[in-house]
Each structure stands twice: as structure tokens, then as C-alpha cells.
Design a protein around this nucleic acid. Structure first.
Length: 267
DNA sequence: GCCCAGGTATAAA
DNA sequence: TTTATACATGGG
């Protein structure tokens, strides 16, 4: 069934392809996605988001997880005092930070390290096909409990290389309760990051992306080589301090903007 | 073959 | 405390 949501100032494509999500598969004029346990075909016509899913509840959950109901007008107003951010907001117009499940985000960004997007997509796809639950031809993201029951060699079909060990370690630390979702969501940012970095293979970058995209921590700032280059180019002294509560969103706008200049290959 | 990919752990300086 | 290298895999 098709469900429609009014979502002004929202861009489905920018949101799905700004580097936070790896499970969108083009299908006709839209995309098949699996999000928060719901599979859906999503598309957009003007200010209207169309979610094709099995029931209204699922469709709403998907739209919510996409951030389609989030209003960034106050945030954009806050950022608008800054010339670079104005240009970045234009480049990333309509993007939203998604609300992805914590464990799924963590595993996705563990897989992303020293890797490229097409291959990340393939590995996650195989992970879901092998160990997720099949419903109607779509696979859920496997639970921490399920993956915790496996060993490294079980992940061989994923061809994820050295990351297999990290995936198993993360799953076991989640399944055992050693990493607590409530803590990750509510503790001071540095403590939440430290909690995630107990996992082998999780450093500051993966932790920060997990916090931003999977724990609604909009203040989390996934600094990496790419962003550092862009930031060094745009800001001598870092982001303006008043942007701190939304540094993650600012960073995501800048990421999209910087990518359009190919800063990745600059010295 | 060589280089790189939204990194991280480890071993040297 | 900072700087170099290996790490699995696959595409350009």
C-alpha cells in the first residue's frame, strides 16, 4: 500500500546518499530500503514523500527514521550567519540525519573503515542475506544476539576481510550488555564514545558516526581525514562554537559540499 | 602491478 | 605524544 507524507524541505536522495546509509537499492523512480525492521519502497514527488509498505504503522516508522518529520528550519537559521555553512546548506539542501538502529549503524561503520561505498554496500547486503530474517524477499539487519553466536570463520562469505573479527567482538559486547544502548544515548558524549571504543576495531571515527547516525547524538562530530581537509580549508579555528549542539549536522552539510569540490584528493 | 577506499591497532621513533 | 605500516578485499 502507498502512504503519502508531506515533507517540505526534505530531500530523499540527499538523505539516503549523503554517506550515512548503505542499504538503498534503486527501484524504478524510487528506492527499496529496509529501515528499523521495516522494508519499503520510497520515492518523492515534490514535497510529498511516498512510502510503499505493508501498513501505515510501518510507513510512518520508515518516514520517521528517514527524518522526514524533522524540522531543520531553526538549525538552518542558526547556521545561516556563516558564509561557508550557507554554501554547504545549499549543496546539502534537504538532507536529514537519519534515525537508524544503534547496532546496525555500528556494524555498518565498522565495515566502512578503509573501504569504499560500493563494497560497503555489498558486504552489508551479504550480511543481511546470510544472517538476517527474510520477509517478502527483504532481509532484516541481523541482531547482535544472532551475530554473537557466530565466529569469525562464519563470516567468510561476507568477504569483509579483517573486519570480521571486529563485527564479532561488537556483537558479543552488545549481546552481553557490556555496551548499553541507554548509556550510549544519554551519557556525556565523550563517555558514550569511550563505551563504544571498548570494541576492538572501533576508534573515534566509527564511534562518532555511530553516535550521530544511530543514537540521535546531533552533537557528535565524525572527524576524519576527509572532513579535516575540508575543515582546514573552510575554518581555521574549527566550527563556530555556537554550532556545537548540532556539529554533526553541520559536518554532514560540509561533507556533501566538500565532496562536490573533490577535496578528497587534495594534499 | 599499483593505488585507493568517511580507519584502527600496533610498533617504533 | 606523534608518525609509519599492516590489515582483506575489490575496483579503477
Amino acid at each position: 500500500m502507498n502512504f503519502y507524507f508531506e515533507s517540505p524541505e526534505f530531500s530523499l536522495e540527499r538523505t539516503l546518499f549523503c554517506g550515512q546509509y548503505f542499504r538503498a537499492v534503486p527501484c524504478g523512480s524510487g528506492y527499496n530500503i529496509v529501515l528499523c525492521g521495516h522494508s519499503a519502497l520510497v520515492s518523492q514527488e515534490g514535497d510529498r514523500l511516498c512510502v510503499s509498505s505493508d501498513c501505515l504503522q510501518s510507513a510512518e516508522a520508515v518516514a520517521r527514521a528517514l527524518g522526514a518529520f524533522d524540522d531543520y528550519s531553526d538549525i538552518r537559521r542558526l547556521f545561516s550567519c556563516d558564509d561557508t555553512m550557507n554554501a554547504a546548506m545549499q549543496a546539502g539542501c534537504g538532507l536529514r540525519i537519519m534515525h537508524q538502529p544503534l547496532f546496525e549503524t555500528l556494524i555498518s561503520f565498522i565495515i566502512s573503515q578503509n573501504n569504499n561505498i560500493p563494497r560497503i554496500t555489498g558486504i552489508i547486503s551479504r550480511l543481511c542475506e546470510h544472517f538476517g530474517d527474510n520477509s517478502g524477499g527483504f532481509y532484516s539487519f541481523p541482531s547482535a544476539k544472532r551475530l554473537a553466536s557466530l565466529c569469525e570463520s562464519d563470516l567468510a562469505p561476507l568477504r569483509c576481510g579483517f573486519r570480521a573479527r571486529y563485527i564479532i567482538d561488537a556483537s558479543r559486547k552488545f549481546a552481553s550488555g557490556m555496551i548499553d544502548e541507554g548509556f550510549v544515548r544519554t551519557a556525556p558524549l565523550a563517555d558514550a564514545a569511550a563505551s563504544l571504543m571498548q570494541i576492538v576495531g572501533v576508534g573515534p571515527k566509527v564511534a562518532a558516526c555511530t553516535l550521530l547516525f544511530g543514537a540521535d547524538r546531533l552533537d557528535s562530530f565524525p572527524e576524519d581525514v576527509w572532513i579535516k581537509r575540508a575543515m582546514a580549508h573552510f575554518y581555521k579555528n574549527g566550527l563556530p562554537p555556537q554550532f556545537a549542539p548540532y556539529a554533526g549536522i553541520a559536518q554532514q552539510y560540509i561533507f556533501v559540499y566538500a565532496r562536490s569540490f573533490d577535496f578528497g584528493s587534495e594534499g
